[in-house]
Each structure stands twice: as structure tokens, then as C-alpha cells.
Design a protein around this nucleic acid. Structure first.
Lengths: 344, 344
DNA sequence: CTGAAAGCGCTTACAG
DNA sequence: CTGAAAGCGCTTACAG
């Protein structure tokens, strides 16, 4: 029933109730009030109850900046993704969100737009928040990242692809193996002139192309002319356009392996609108298994990738390391699954 | 060439260079160093140069928590979206990101999962960060929001739908009008038994249904049996399932208006796999205009909604208000565009 | 154009 | 189980 709250009065603060006011109302010291909230078991039941009562009466909300400053712990995790429109990375973010939700950690999400320089710039800015950990969609050992975080002791988890060394923290799957597996599948179905269509030229696309190239070479079918790689972002429209190029420029092309489903869907739509039968005239395969890929006609043969789980597990791993818990593995391979369907 | 840096030494801080160290190295007071960085024009050229030099030598990074505490300004904006897997809201986020990028503001992004209670919970947590503003995907005057932010003076911008009153800050378009416009379009094409398929039962879906219901009633064609509304999240699979229901349960159904493109795409795929011709046997319309909607066969008739721009403009509006600039409008109607295509 | 001092709202060892 | 004091690293009026 106490309506007049304590507090410093004027000053330049936020005007909100402080821990000091809570302590005053509960009749304890500030530090006891602090403990009652952050380490309740170190405080007597009676005290805790009085503090909680005061908190409720005053509508006290702790000030995170003050806590961060005093404890030198920000409880902030920085997340860098190359795109916020690509469904793959929004799924990763979704997983991260879910993993972090119950914790006291907050996310600072940066969009690098597939540019390493942007990554470095964002990291520099986010460093102001003194993050307890970083989640990267790429390799922690890149020069751009090392330049900023190199000697900072801030734990970094690399997402999507796996780290080369066993020390670096990483969660993902082998892009090379996945690219190779799809190529082997297509070879097994009898296709011989399998073109590779890639866009964006990001690390992951390049590795999938590596897997394709190796598998083709191993089959004695390697041919530079089979590779179509552009730097533009992947879209359905671009897929349609590159499919047209493949049909025109790649001699004897009987299958097309696209570096992602957006491109592959565009490729199929191009064929449908131009009377090219899929897979009879040309087979089409994608990568990622977007929800629509299983539903379209023909349904799209693709590689299912565990992006939500990558986000979830990467965040969980990071929280473990931050808390000082030694993780069971520092390198978590979540694998991938081939989805043979109608298009190839 | 000065390699030994100043600083307090032991202590419990972050171990990083402080403004005090920068000031020491530059031979100025802490506050002059502070000014040189935050209000450079209030400082002489020579001083500024010496401070910048010291910053570079020490690799100084300002501590955001300290700044927030001292200034009572967090430079934090809270963003609440109902989903992180729905492409509509990831586009909104993308727009917000781009609008805020050049500013000193950081985003705290919460996923409410379409639950008002979750919204209240998240707001309470984010209040600890003392945000300078809030971006909401819904109405600022909801009881859940009011309970937390009601007497806080923190500016709120509502996204997606428009506010009722002229004072409340909002950026979006009229969901009711958009629902009505699509319905009128279908009526104009001669369809009479137009079913409405809705999922999630979120505010936006309900308003689109309102628009549909009014337009049908105005045409003298209202019929409760035409409405199929479920609470589950929208997916392509659900669209297929609900299309089956519409074909079975709605007498004489000649068109289906789905509350979003995911549902509509699923509806079309269902028809294709069951020999139902679209639009000859039944027309299908969607909402939002996802990238794939223009490409699929038949291409999807839908309503193009400016979600990226909503995010961008909402964030810009909020930044204006925070900065004390009176905005040209407090209620920004970005409209919508009908996209007549092959499916209806 | 520059500075001394106080203060933002918490937490941290250290005692008792 | 509880407390007095110092300190985290900045910025803010107020002077000069």
C-alpha cells in the first residue's frame, strides 16, 4: 500500500525505481537486495520475501547497463549473418533465438551482406557492447575476424561449415561432402553432363562447387564448361536466367545442380515455360530443401540442411563455453540428407 | 610508438583500454577526450587529432554500458515480431536493419510467436535495457503492451496495420481494405462462391477476413459456410489441407481467397495433384506476393504488400521521434497493390 | 576551447 | 546470512 517511492529525486537518471529504493523499502542494504534478486539462495526466506514485495510495489526493473558495467559481463551475444532475406539464415536465427530464450542473454544481430569488410566493421561496433560471445556464419579464422577479435579471448562459434582444426568451435556440416553427395547421386542416376549453377560466390557455394568438381573429376567427367558461377544474389529470377544459359551454352547438358533451391526452382520454372521437360530433357537438383521444394511440380530433388538446428546447437555450444562448461565436442557435425524427388 | 598503455591495472573491469587511458596518452582530461569523440566540433583540431591518435594507438573501444549508464540513453530499439520464420516479418526486420544501420542504435529483436502474453513478457525483459523506442507488429494500445509501457514515455511505432487514432505512431496499410480489394477483384471476375481460408487467427488475418466478409455482404453473397479459419500456423501443407476441405465442404465453391501466399500455394499444389484445374475449376488468390508466387504455374493472383518498406519507414519514423524531430505524419499509409495473375 | 567533480545504478571482494 | 565502501567507465551541468 506504500505509494510514495524512495529514490534520489532529481538527478539525470532514467527516473525509474532503483535497487537502492527497493532496499530502502525492504529495510535491507543495497547489496542484500542485489543478492536477493541474483542469488536468492544466499539470502534468508524472510529477507527475500521482503525484497520481492518491494520490487513488486515499486515496479522495479533492473538496469542492465549498470549491471554490465559493474560486473564486466554484458550478457550479450553477437550474431553475424550474411543475409536477412535468405530463408536459410532466418532459420538459423530462429534456432539461435530459441536456444538463447531461457537464458539472460541478449542477441545483437548484424547483417554482413556477404561482405567480409562489413563483418569487420560490424564486429568493431558490437565490440562496444563487450559481448560475452560471438556467433559467425563463416570461419572464425578469417583475417577480417582475427583482426578484430584476434586477441580478445571472446569465444567464437562458426556456423554452417565445419572448422578445419579441432580447437575452433563450429557447428554445421561439410559443404564439400554435400556437394559431392548430390553429384554422386546424379551420376548414379545416369546423368553425365551435370552443370553446376552457382550464385553469390560465397564460401558455402564455392565449397559445394568444390564437392561437385571433385566428384565429376573422380568420374572422369570433369569439364570447365559445365560450371556457371555468378556473383549476384540467388533469386528465382536468376535461376531462370542461368538455366537458360546452361541450356544454350553447355553442350549436351543433361542435368543441372543448383547451389540452392531458389535457383533450382527458377530453373524448373524456366523449363516449364519453355517446354523443356524436367527431368526427361534435363534434370534439376537444388540445395537446402525449402518448404516449397517438396510441393512444387515436379517436386525438387535437393539436399536437406539442418539450418535451424545449426543455429540452436551453435548458440547452446556458445552458452556452454561462456559458462565455463567444457563441451562434449567443439566441432559438431549435424550432417545433411539427400532428398531424391521427381526433378532428378 | 607508445606500446605500454595506461589504465588502472588490476581491478575487475574488462581489461580493455579506457577513455581515461586515451586522455592520459593524449595529454587531456577525460571529458575533453569524451567530447573529442562524441562532439568533435567542440574541440580544437589539434586536440582532436591527439585524441584520435591515442584512440588508434590503444585500440580504444568505447564501453556502451558505461555510456548508457552515464547518459541515461541506451541507444537501443526494441523490435517485436510474431515470427522469425515467416518471410513477411523477416522482410520487415531487413528494412528495420537497413534504416537503423547508419545510426548509433542497436536492435533488440524479440519473437512473440503470435502470443500477446509473450509480448508482455519480452517487453518486460527488454525494459531492463532502457530502450529509447519500441517497434511493434501490432497495436500499441493493446492491454498487454499498455500494462508494461503505459506510463513510460517510450515512443512506440506500430507496424503493419494502421492505427485508429491520429496520435499513435503507425506505418502500414489497411488490412481490411486489402482484403476487400481482393474480394472485389474476384467478384469482378465473376466468381460468386468465394471461400476465405485463414490460419493463425492473428490480428492481420482477422482483418483481412473482415474485408472479405464486408465485400461479400455488400454483394449480397455473404455466407458463413464460406469461411474456413484455423489457429495453426500457415504452411504450404496446411494450405493443401484446407483447400481439400474447401472443395469438400463448401457447396459450389468457385474461388478461394487465402490469407497468405503460403496457404495459396499449398492450395494450388493440392489442386494440381488432384486434377482440379486452377482457375477453371476453382480460382485461387493469395496475399503478400512472395517471390515464388509470380513464377509458379499458374502464377498466383495476390496482393503485394510493402513489408520491407514498412520496416524501413517505421524505424525511420521512430528515429525521428526519438530525436525530437516532429514527423510529417504520425500515421503512414504505404498501401498495397493487387497483382492479377493466372490463378484467379 | 578545456577541466574538476559528481554521479549514473549496479556488483564485487572483504568482513563479520 | 548481512553490510560498508569502492569501483565499473563513461557523461553531465557548471565554471572558466
Amino acid at each position: 500500500m506504500n505509494t510514495t517511492s524512495a529514490g534520489k529525486g532529481r538527478g539525470r537518471g532514467t527516473g525509474r525505481a532503483t535497487l537502492e529504493a527497493v532496499a530502502g523499502l525492504a529495510g535491507v542494504s543495497t547489496m542484500t537486495a542485489s543478492r536477493a534478486l541474483s542469488q536468492p539462495r544466499l539470502v534468508s526466506d524472510a529477507t527475500r520475501a521482503r525484497v520481492e514485495q518491494a520490487v513488486a510495489e515499486l515496479g522495479y526493473v533492473p538496469n542492465r547497463a549498470a549491471r554490465a558495467l559493474a560486473s564486466a559481463q554484458s550478457r550479450v551475444i553477437v550474431v553475424l549473418v550474411p543475409s536477412l532475406s535468405n530463408a536459410v539464415f532466418t532459420a538459423v536465427l530462429d534456432g539461435i533465438h530459441d536456444a538463447v530464450e531461457a537464458s539472460q542473454y541478449q542477441l545483437l544481430i548484424g547483417n554482413t551482406r556477404y561482405a567480409a569488410a562489413e563483418e569487420e566493421k560490424l564486429l568493431n561496433i558490437y565490440l562496444q557492447s563487450n559481448p560475452d560471445g560471438v556467433l559467425l556464419s563463416g570461419h572464425a579464422d578469417s583475417p577480417h575476424v582475427q583482426r578484430v577479435l584476434g586477441n580478445s579471448r571472446i569465444p567464437i562459434v562458426s556456423m554452417m561449415d565445419l572448422a578445419d582444426g579441432p580447437d575452433e568451435l563450429s557447428v554445421g556440416f561439410s559443404q564439400i561432402d554435400a556437394g559431392g553427395a548430390m553429384t554422386d547421386y546424379l551420376l548414379g542416376k545416369g546423368y553425365r553432363r551435370i552443370a553446376f549453377i552457382g550464385a553469390q560466390r560465397d564460401e558455402r557455394t564455392l565449397r559445394r562447387a568444390d564437392g561437385w568438381r571433385r566428384a565429376m573429376a573422380a568420374a572422369g567427367l570433369g569439364d570447365e564448361r559445365l560450371e556457371i558461377m555468378v556473383g549476384e544474389p540467388s533469386t528465382i529470377a536468376l535461376g531462370a536466367q542461368l538455366m537458360q544459359r546452361a541450356l544454350r551454352e553447355v553442350p549436351g547438358c543433361d542435368a543441372v545442380f543448383c547451389c540452392n533451391d531458389d535457383l533450382a526452382q527458377g530453373a524448373i520454372y524456366h523449363c516449364q515455360r519453355h517446354g523443356v521437360r524436367v527431368p526427361d530433357d534435363v534434370a534439376v537438383a537444388g540445395f537446402n530443401d525449402l518448404p516449397s521444394s517438396a510441393w512444387m511440380l515436379p517436386s525438387l530433388t535437393t539436399v536437406d540442411t539442418p539450418r535451424y538446428r545449426i543455429g540452436f546447437e551453435a548458440a547452446s555450444l556458445l552458452l556452454d563455453v561462456i559458462a565455463g562448461r567444457e563441451p562434449a565436442q567443439r566441432r559438431i557435425d549435424l550432417g545433411f540428407t539427400l532428398r531424391p524427388r521427381e526433378s532428378a
